[in-house]
Amino acid sequence: MAPVVDRLKTEYEGVVEFRLINVETDAEGAQIANDFGVQYVPSFVLLGGDGAQRDLLVGEMTEEQLRAALDALK
């Protein structure tokens, strides 16, 4: 897990749930990625509290980019 995601996971605990999926080693990881239409790694899928997909970010993200996407979910 990237240090940026690790930091943000701690910071947003109780506000946003982080689900980190290794598409190669996690059971059904590739299937879940496929269900979301994820074609590249790393990718980030953001869902609202109702489960609706809000965003799909592809590629390495800076802390600022991820933070902005997370704040948009609040």
Partner: peptide, 13 residues
Amino acid sequence: LSGLPILYEFYTD
């Protein structure tokens, strides 16, 4: 769903 917004990160090592 847990009621919270969710961030999925898809990655490989």
